[in-house]
């Protein structure tokens, strides 16, 4: 078993289509989708992001990072939220991704989440990170 993050991304057309839909309808479709993954025992975490217009982008390029207001300017896609599922294969994570109630212009990127076992146990920074995760978890 591995954890996979289903990363939801969408372009402006997808956002416009989403906003044109009745809110109740969107909430119900997402709710049903989340419930189906909870009932299947695979959903372990997930969060949706607030409007990108509220966000800020810190961009690295020149000597100092450049801070601009969101949305991302040049970028054609916005990162809107994620689900973390725990499945034995990436194919099963993909199968869950395919069932998301999303329309044209949306994408879900499926990525395996690194576990502590992916890193050398004797690295000082890996040990520190594990401690931070532990402290944050309490």
């Amino acid at each position: 078993m591995s954890k996979y993050m289903l990363i939801m991304r969408g372009n402006e057309a997808a956002l416009a289509a989403f906003e044109a839909k009745p809110f109740e309808e969107v909430i119900e479709a997402m709710g049903r989708y989340n419930e189906s993954m909870i009932e299947a025992g695979v959903l372990v975490a997930g969060e949706g992001l607030a409007d990108a217009a509220e966000g800020v982008v810190v961009e690295f390029g020149g000597e100092v990072p450049v801070v601009t207001d969101g949305p991302y300017g040049e970028l054609k896609e916005l990162f809107n939220g994620y689900w973390t599922v725990e499945t034995p294969t990436i194919e099963e994570a993909v199968e869950w991704a395919k069932r998301a109630p999303l329309g044209v212009g949306n994408k879900i990127e499926v990525r395996r989440v690194n576990g502590i076992e992916d890193f050398p146990a004797d690295n000082e920074w890996i040990q520190k990170e594990a401690q931070w995760i532990e402290q944050a978890g309490k």
């Binding site: 954890k3 372990v44 576990g115 502590i116 146990a121 532990e134 978890g137």
Partner: peptide, 28 residues
Amino acid sequence: PARTAPDGSAVLLADQDRTRWDRLLIAR
């Protein structure tokens, strides 16, 4: 993630590196 040593041998609860425990599963 903490119950097996790199050489494959079992690690007892008392000796486990607790920072390797899966916090997400503990929360669940």
